[in-house]
């Protein structure tokens, strides 16, 4: 939606190097530079991140809530897909 506040952008924050970026929220901005700055000012004020991605919200392709059952229910009863039968190797922090 484009109006006086600029368009909507989704913000993803990486808390430490090598960790995945996580969705943090959204902001308004009129261009890329402003989007990064606004994301920095809103979502990393308390040291939450070392990296930022911003993506125009209308570039995100989302699943349709109506497809929820067919997309996700088939995975629910397949417990053998969970890695619960393995032991965490010593020293592995992020698996």
């Amino acid at each position: 939606m484009e109006h006086t506040q600029g368009k909507l952008w989704e913000v993803f924050i990486q808390s430490k190097n090598n960790l995945p970026y996580k969705h943090a929220g959204s902001i308004h901005a009129t261009d890329k530079e402003m989007a990064i700055q606004n994301a920095r000012d809103l979502y990393t004020r308390r040291g939450e991140g070392r990296g930022i991605w911003v993506v125009p919200s209308d570039c995100i392709v989302a699943s349709n809530p109506e497809d929820e059952e067919s997309l996700f229910d088939p995975g629910v009863d397949k417990i053998y897909r969970h890695p619960t039968f393995y032991h965490m190797p010593d020293g592995a922090e992020n698996i």
Binding site: T4, Q5, G6, H28, A29, Q37, N38, D41, L42, R45
Partner: peptide, 12 residues
């Protein structure tokens, strides 16, 4: 400020 984002930027 004119938008929330700038409000926070300026106060930061």
């Amino acid at each position: 400020a004119h938008i929330l984002e700038e409000d926070i930027a300026l106060t930061n």
